[in-house]
Design a protein around this nucleic acid. Structure first.
Lengths: 147, 147
DNA sequence: TCAATCATGACAGTTTGCTGTCATATCTCT
DNA sequence: AGAGATATGACAGCAAACTGTCATGATTGA
């Protein structure tokens, strides 16, 4: 493999590892509150502004169908509801309910603790650099692969 | 959310996005050769040295069961075989066959092109920094969360 | 205006990875 | 040597994301 290929391979394999760790952490944080990582993620996407399913999917880089499944489950559990969308008859808005908001709020202390642990480990400044690099890579991947 | 929480949330969401992009890219590269991203990954893990299923799982940060499933499929398709492991009666070694090696080799040109595109986009030096940051973050996550 | 195109949700089926459990092989320690 | 701990594979079931397809609501352009 060329050096460039090695770099890409390392990036990909590391991204897979990292994804696994973040998923595990999210599940760990969400579980005590009765949520899964996916549920938390969808709830988080509509905390500040209600969005239709397809909008959530776009924001998270997932397919409509995946998000639809989760959204239906959330509504079923009373953590979210579907509200009429003035701009679109079929695309109802996913809105967090009080119960959903309360659940997300209960994750907060553990979430904060985990965040502080991570930042402490890397140092404030390095932590920002590292996350910045992550964002830059994701942006480039999205721009590059889309065509 | 505290600034630390925001940073963790950004890192996690970006990691999910990035994971999706790398997966899509890997599938795109592997598909013309009749492989999936997961198959390619497992084959790649045993290209240089045969490993038992559990060893592959450890190397990739996955569970034994996931890898076992893929390995069985690979053997079924003749891309790998199970060889006796002198060190362990039950833990057979996964070995790439000629067909498996040929498949991986056929991915090479597209793999190289994709790698060059990515590095060109970021610049040689920045690309290394970014991947370094990714590795550092993954390492910290693994060290931090494991207890 | 209205026909063609696009966006959205619903439904079905597939893939991949996970957890849990069991039986057995290997290793460790006294 | 042998008991307990650990590693491994097999099997079953579940969660989450994907692709494909269809019907219908929105948008756009001639």
């Amino acid at each position: 493999m060329t050096p460039d290929q090695e770099l890409l391979a390392t990036a990909a394999l590391t991204s897979f590892r990292l994804n696994g760790r973040f998923l595990a952490l999210a599940d760990e944080l969400a579980k005590p509150v009765g949520l899964t990582a996916a549920w938390w993620q969808v709830l988080g996407a509509v905390l500040h502004e209600p969005l239709p399913v397809s909008g959530i999917a776009r924001a998270m880089g997932l397919t409509r169908q995946s998000v639809q499944r989760i959204a239906d489950l959330l509504v079923d559990r009373g953590l979210a509801t579907y509200a009429d969308n003035p701009a679109h008859a079929r695309a109802k808005l996913v809105v967090v309910t009080d119960a959903g908001l309360a659940a997300v709020r209960r994750i907060d202390p553990a979430h904060r603790a985990a965040a502080e642990r991570l930042v402490a480990e890397l140092g404030e400044e390095r932590a920002r650099e590292v996350v910045g690099a992550l964002v830059e890579l994701a942006d480039v991947m999205e721009r590059t692969e889309h065509r």
